[in-house]
Amino acid sequence: TPTLRDKYNFTDEEVEFFDLHIVSDEIHGERGYQIVLEHADTPELQQRCLKICEIGAQMRLLYTTALYHDYVAQEIPLPELELAA
């Protein structure tokens, strides 16, 4: 969130949304990790969990890629994004 404040001049109220979601994501991620540790007690179940995580990550990438193409690509082509990073 420092970039939102420093580069984009977001107010504390505007940044609060992101702060809350970051904390929630950390809590949910830890809880998910604990559930897997408790229940995936065989190598087969652990591999299944890893595969499900891989599929979820691929789905997230497809989703964010589609958002980029639908809402951002015309204004900020990908080569510009690579130079900015």
Results as ranks from 00 to 15, higher is better:
Thr1Val: 15
Thr1Asp: 13
Pro2Val: 11
Pro2Ala: 08
Pro2Asp: 11
Pro2His: 03
Thr3Ile: 10
Thr3Phe: 13
Arg5Phe: 01
Arg5Trp: 02
Arg5His: 07
Arg5Met: 14
Asp6Gly: 05
Lys7Asn: 10
Lys7Ala: 15
Tyr8Ser: 12
Asn9Asp: 07
Asn9Tyr: 06
Asp12Lys: 07
Asp12Val: 02
Glu14Leu: 08
Glu14Ile: 07
Glu14Met: 14
Glu14Ala: 13
Val15Trp: 00
Glu16Gln: 14
Phe18Ala: 07
Phe18Ser: 02
Asp19Leu: 08
Asp19Pro: 02
Asp19Trp: 00
Leu20Asn: 12
Leu20Ile: 06
Leu20Gly: 14
Leu20Pro: 01
His21Met: 09
Ile22Arg: 09
Val23Gln: 05
Val23Tyr: 00
Ser24Pro: 01
Ser24His: 13
Ser24Arg: 05
Asp25Arg: 06
Asp25Lys: 01
Asp25Gln: 06
Asp25His: 06
Glu26Thr: 05
Glu26Lys: 06
Glu26Ser: 10
Gly29Ile: 07
Glu30Gln: 13
Glu30Val: 07
Glu30Lys: 12
Glu30Ala: 14
Glu30Gly: 04
Glu30Arg: 04
Gly32Ile: 04
Tyr33Phe: 15
Tyr33Asn: 14
Tyr33Trp: 15
Gln34His: 06
Gln34Ile: 02
Val36Pro: 00
Leu37Asn: 15
Leu37Arg: 12
Leu37Ile: 06
Leu37Lys: 11
Glu38Val: 03
His39Ala: 03
His39Asp: 08
Pro43His: 02
Pro43Leu: 04
Glu44Leu: 12
Leu45Asn: 11
Gln46Met: 12
Gln46Trp: 01
Gln47Phe: 09
Gln47Gly: 03
Arg48Ile: 03
Cys49His: 00
Cys49Gly: 01
Leu50Asp: 07
Leu50His: 04
Lys51Cys: 10
Ile52Gln: 11
Cys53Arg: 15
Glu54Asp: 13
Glu54His: 11
Ile55His: 11
Gln58Lys: 11
Gln58Ala: 14
Gln58His: 09
Met59Ile: 08
Met59Thr: 09
Leu61Thr: 08
Leu62Asn: 15
Tyr63Cys: 12
Thr65Met: 12
Thr65Ser: 15
Thr65Phe: 03
Thr65Ala: 14
Ala66Gln: 07
Ala66Arg: 14
Ala66Glu: 09
Leu67Gly: 11
Tyr68Val: 02
His69Gly: 01
Asp70Gln: 11
Tyr71Phe: 14
Ala73Lys: 05
Glu75Cys: 03
Glu75Val: 04
Glu75Ile: 08
Ile76Asn: 04
Ile76Gly: 02
Ile76His: 08
Pro77Arg: 05
Pro77Ser: 05
Pro79Thr: 02
Pro79Val: 00
Pro79Ile: 03
Glu80Met: 05
Leu81Gly: 05
Glu82Gly: 00
Leu83Cys: 02
Leu83Pro: 00
Ala84Ser: 10
Ala85Gln: 13
